[in-house]
């Protein structure tokens, strides 16, 4: 089993990378031997805010990924320091995201075979 961590660092709305990061992570389920997880850091932390939705700008929805997170039971982490830095007021429970501090996630990195920044 290979563990893959997809790290998204750019905000939805301004870029497509949060969507692509989740989409790529879900694509990994095509292989039985891959276990993808997703980590949101820096501006990407705003992904989990209740009010964040690029669809409001006429762009592709980000909230659509929630359905697949729940379908695949994908582990999603959001970095605590980034949530605080970008003042995310309230987390949308649809992402089933686990809050994790930077030191803890960085200590865990050795568990992953590939850490892929999107």
């Amino acid at each position: 089993m290979k563990k893959i961590l997809f790290v998204i660092y750019q905000a939805p709305g301004g870029t497509i990378w949060p969507n692509e990061g989740f989409r790529t992570a879900f694509g990994m389920y095509a292989e039985e031997d891959l276990e993808p997880e997703v980590l949101l850091i820096d501006q990407a932390a705003i992904t989990v805010a209740q009010g964040t939705e690029p669809k409001d700008l006429g762009l592709l929805s980000i909230k659509m990924v929630q359905r697949y997170i729940q379908k695949y039971d994908t582990k999603v982490y959001v970095e605590k320091e980034s949530l605080e830095k970008f003042q995310v007021p309230d987390m949308d429970e649809g992402y089933v995201a686990e809050l994790i501090d930077r030191a803890s996630i960085q200590a865990k990195l050795a568990e992953y075979d590939n850490v892929i920044f999107m």
């Binding site: 790290v7 660092y9 850091i41 820096d42 501006q43 930077r102 920044f117």
Partner: peptide, 8 residues
């Protein structure tokens, strides 16, 4: 910021 994160 991502590169700084990796380095840390």
């Amino acid at each position: 910021p991502a590169e700084a994160w990796k380095l840390q």
